[in-house]
Computed example of a mutant assay.
Amino acid sequence: MYNSELENQVNQLLKSSSCSDSMQNGLQVEGRRKIEKVITGVTACYDLLYEAAYTNTDAVVVHHGYFWEKECPFIKGMKKQRLKILLENDINLFAWHLPLDIHPTLGNNVKLAELLDIKIKGEVVKPYVLWGELRQPLDAYSLKQKISMILGREPLHCFAANAPALIKCLAWCSGRGQMFIDAAATFGVDAFISGEVSEQTIHSTREQRLHFFAAGHHATERAGVKALGEWLAKQYNLNVRFVDIENPV
């Protein structure tokens, strides 16, 4: 498979052109033309790129790539080292951000629902925030334990004094989705799950009869890029391996 073909096929699959994003999706750093061996990961950090170079990998596919809006444009320090290892080893870097969060079958939000056994019912904030119901209602402690077991990271749990004793209806947004907590509370769910937490998130939780779980930005966004890699392997007979660079946040 050629690098331009991989970019075009995934752009079509994820409908990248229809997303207004803070990062350019697709082929961000061009490497060798022919691709047979691929590594997928959450973020294009140095350790992931080193693994690609060490194993003579043709392409790296990530959720968090480079060249964000307001990012410093200078190629020095950490950015220099990252680009250097890609260029010296002729490795392609592909990144898909928002299109991979919201995709209806491969997206981080859909995959998070599958992992936590949530039946999707609809959207709270289209297309970023989904809502649904646990197939088996749980108390907050049990849901916290389930999230810990499935994602491999203990979530931060905050709750209102009058929050429901049993959690059935939830809304969620992977990654930096805590900004949507007020919309979720107004919608009327029992709990809201995101990757990150902000100072004001705690007050919103306590004052709006809600449970809140911050399950980790990295942990809530592993599944999308992993699923994309599995799709590439199946569709194009590529050698694809997901590499999880541990991140507690």
Rank of each mutant, 00 (worst) to 15 (best):
K37R: 15
S17L: 11
D182A: 11
G122S: 09
D101G: 04
E71Q: 06
D90S: 08
L14M: 03
P104V: 05
P155C: 03
L232E: 11
S16C: 12
V38A: 15
E246K: 11
E196P: 06
V10G: 00
G41P: 05
M1P: 15
A95Q: 02
L210E: 05
I167G: 02
V110R: 02
I202Y: 09
N3G: 03
I85F: 03
E123F: 07
I202R: 10
F74Y: 09
Q24R: 10
W96G: 01
L87G: 03
H217P: 02
L98T: 10
S4G: 08
E36H: 10
V243F: 05
D21Y: 09
E36C: 14
F213V: 12
Y66P: 01
Q235H: 00
L116M: 14
T43A: 11
G175E: 06
W172P: 06
G65F: 04
R32P: 00
E246Y: 10
L151G: 06
K37P: 13
E36R: 15
G41W: 11
W68Q: 02
S4I: 06
P104G: 09
N8C: 06
F192Q: 04
I39R: 10
S174F: 05
L14Y: 01
Q200C: 07
G175M: 00
L151I: 13
F94G: 08
I75F: 11
R176T: 03
L170D: 08
R153E: 01
D58N: 08
I245Y: 09
Y46E: 09
E69C: 14
D190M: 04
Q208N: 15
V129C: 11
L116G: 06
S142R: 14
A214E: 02
I35T: 15
G224L: 04
H103M: 07
A171S: 15
T220D: 12
Y236L: 14
N3D: 13
I193W: 00
R32E: 02
C173H: 09
A161F: 07
P99R: 01
E5A: 13
L100E: 11
D182V: 10
T201W: 00
Y54I: 05
P127I: 08
K119E: 14
N247K: 09
Q145S: 07
V42G: 00
V197E: 05
M149F: 10
N92F: 08
N239R: 01
Y2P: 05
A165G: 09
K37A: 08
A184M: 00
V225A: 13
V110S: 02
T220V: 13
S22M: 11
L130C: 00
F242Y: 08
A59F: 12
Y141I: 03
D139K: 12
F187Y: 14
V249S: 11
